[in-house]
């Protein structure tokens, strides 16, 4: 009898999501911001795999597959935006992305 229940995994997924969320809120470096986004997506992936394993249904795992695809595309576009910002403003901080406010 294992003592690790699905709620342990869900709580871990919640913790990963929260850490990533605070990273997105509190950091200004866009590189770290994107990495924190990845951490949030990882927490969601872990929760989905847990649900998929618990209910013996493959749909959740296939969702994880699609989330990984979207995350890879998102990182590629985000980093291209970062390089474009760096070429224009010589900075990687999110407060320098202010074309509208001034």
């Amino acid at each position: 009898m294992e003592t690790i229940s699905p709620s342990h995994y869900l709580f871990l997924a919640l913790c990963l999501f929260s850490i990533g969320f605070f990273g997105v809120l509190l950091r200004r470096n866009i590189l770290l911001l994107l990495m924190s986004l990845e951490l949030m997506l990882n927490g969601i992936n872990l929760a989905l795999v847990t649900f998929s394993r618990t209910s013996l249904n493959l749909d959740g795992s296939i969702f994880v597959f699609f989330i990984m695809t979207v995350a890879a595309a998102e990182v590629a576009v985000g980093l291209a935006l970062l390089v474009a910002l760096y070429k224009k403003r010589q900075s990687v901080f999110s407060e320098d992305m202010n074309l509208v406010s001034n």
Partner: peptide
């Protein structure tokens, strides 16, 4: 952190993921 999550996937028997 990513390797840790991958190991948790192994524990959940989602080897391909």
């Amino acid at each position: 952190s990513l390797v840790g999550v991958a190991s948790l996937f192994v524990l959940l028997e989602a080897f391909f993921l």
